[in-house]
Design a protein around this nucleic acid. Structure first.
Lengths: 233, 233
DNA sequence: GATCCGATCTATGTATACATTAAATTATTT
DNA sequence: AAATAATTTAATGTATACATAGATCGGATC
């Protein structure tokens, strides 16, 4: 048995430097450090990160596949800006997939432990909301949704949803910063309704409620963007 | 208006050699020329395609992102085989997204021309079925589904669906070859029902009918695989 | 003065070389 | 003989060099 050997036991996903290059560029995009709509040469990115063009190129290809940037033949890479129409496209996908995750979870039956974890996120939302800590509120909200998606036990579904979240990340961050969430307590209520449907094993209710929740989210997001005349972000 | 980017419409798809490398490897995988589960070194791929490792590497990164292969650190790339559990995962995504496309199409209202195109595919299915030309039948079927997805006018949704189709391509091809489609005429009936719902503008019916159609397809696919003890393909 | 053609410049796409590191194999020790 | 350590092998990950093609700029011609 090889399980006595500590070194070869852990088959980690392998931390290659190129993954870190990918992560660093991704972070710069999510944080708007690389501005949406702006262009930057591969060479400039390479210098910025202190590596050669090759690993930058490979990271950039991945990021293009994920829709975060676009390789423009003679002008380097372009950070793709998200317009209202893009928000609609992305939320269309989320409105289909996330409720499906809730449906699957309800259908297979959530364990008490899993349900408690979901409730814990909601409680944390209520706490942070009471204290006006909107950043922490948003984190708890994200955790709730992440848990539900991951509990679907469908890796492909998870990956697609996470990628969509990345694409709308700047818009969500902006909305959060700009002002209080329109009705934060309403969100928490809806979360509890979803948890209840999952607890009952009512798959189609879980799906319907989750979908309504996300549709409301999209509307609010678009309302904020149009109200502030943000056509792209 | 700030969103004036009409100039970028003139961008050609840019025929770079690397795209052709990508296409050639992708085709080899879809056609099982590179067998599922097999491994091959980057160098061997490069020699096989008559180029250096660099463009192969870039193509391979894209293919990994699309889930067609996996880069295994010291053993080249591995063509990812699709198991029954993978079929479930992928169809979960399709069962969410394709009905959503039908729903969107019904909601926005299909033009007479668009409806005729959909009907034409169904007629072609009936014709080819009557002649026992199952390959052509499958092509017409694919066209029907492709049209509906594309008519959703949601590029991201289209991309994800096409990628899922790629991933289950070998299984679909196998099922088709192995024997007659379980009930090909049933498929056509269901297609007409979907078209009718779209014509009525009944979005939720279009979604429901489409979903049922795909759920049946998944069941049949899995039945065939388990009946023939195909655990991976 | 404007347009068209050509020359130059530059970013990319590709090839190649090299260093790193994981795997495999051999040698050594208990 | 088994296990571990050391050495070798080899595939990758990265850097660099170079050829190509597209864009810009200037000059020449109408």
């Amino acid at each position: 048995m090889a399980d006595a050997n500590q070194k070869s036991e852990l088959k980690l996903p392998r931390r290659t430097p190129i993954d870190s290059i990918y992560e660093r560029i991704r972070k710069k995009i999510l944080d708007s450090e690389l501005a949406p709509g702006s262009q930057i040469l591969e060479q400039e990115l390479a210098v910025m990160l202190g590596v050669s063009r090759t690993p930058v190129r490979e990271a950039v290809i991945r990021l293009q596949n994920e829709g975060l940037l676009e390789i423009v033949p003679r002008h380097g890479v372009r950070i793709v800006p998200i317009a209202v129409s893009d928000m609609r496209e992305i939320y269309d996908v989320l409105i289909s997939l996330e409720p499906r995750a809730a449906e699957l979870l309800a259908a297979r039956g959530a364990s008490p432990k899993e349900l408690r974890k979901l409730e814990a996120s909601c409680e944390r939302m209520a706490d942070t909301l009471a204290r006006g800590e909107m950043e922490k509120w948003a984190l708890a909200d994200e955790e709730f949704h992440l848990d539900i998606v991951q509990l679907s036990n469908n890796r492909r579904l998870v990956d697609i949803v996470l990628n969509c979240w990345d694409q709308v990340h700047r818009a969500r961050y902006f909305t959060l910063r700009l002002r209080q969430h329109p009705r934060p307590s309403k969100s928490i209520e809806e979360h509890y309704e979803i948890i209840e449907a999952i607890r009952r094993g009512d798959a189609s209710a879980a799906r319907r409620l989750y979908r309504r929740h996300r549709e409301r989210g999209l509307r609010e997001q678009i309302d904020v963007m149009t109200a502030f005349r943000i056509h792209q972000i």
